[in-house]
């Protein structure tokens, strides 16, 4: 199965500024505040994946049926990220996308009666 996703938009911090307390109270000099550019101003990278699988069906007694599914997710490409975070580290913006590892084998068993 071929799947293509245009990815979602997120807000990312692009400016680092001093905390207001540094100015009005000469307090907390090391604290910084982060300001994002536009709301949902950055789009994550598009992605695609190809899954391959096979289904075995075995007839049991009377109405019973055994179904065994097996295959590999993201045989080609990568899975869509289920979590995306942005941060400022050593003065640079970093975006981290976390997705299922690819390729990812799967097995499922269903019993119908």
């Amino acid at each position: 199965m071929w799947e293509y996703n245009t990815e979602r938009y997120i807000s990312i911090p692009i400016y680092e500024i001093a905390n207001i307390d540094n100015v009005i109270n000469d307090d907390s000099p090391s604290i910084k505040n982060y300001v994002y550019g536009d709301i949902n101003g950055f789009q994550l990278k598009d992605n695609y994946r190809i899954d391959a699988g096979y289904t075995f069906q075995i007839k049991g007694k009377k109405y019973a049926k055994h179904i065994l599914k097996t295959g590999i997710y993201s045989l080609v490409g990568k899975a869509a990220p289920f979590r995306a975070t942005s941060s400022v580290f050593e003065g640079e913006v970093n975006i981290e996308e976390v997705a299922l590892p690819s390729p990812m084998p799967y097995v499922s068993y269903t019993f119908k009666f």
Binding site: F42, I95, E96, E97, V98, A99, P101
Partner: peptide, 8 residues
């Protein structure tokens, strides 16, 4: 392999 980091 789950995590991918990059600079926008």
């Amino acid at each position: 392999s789950c995590s991918n980091e990059y600079t926008p």
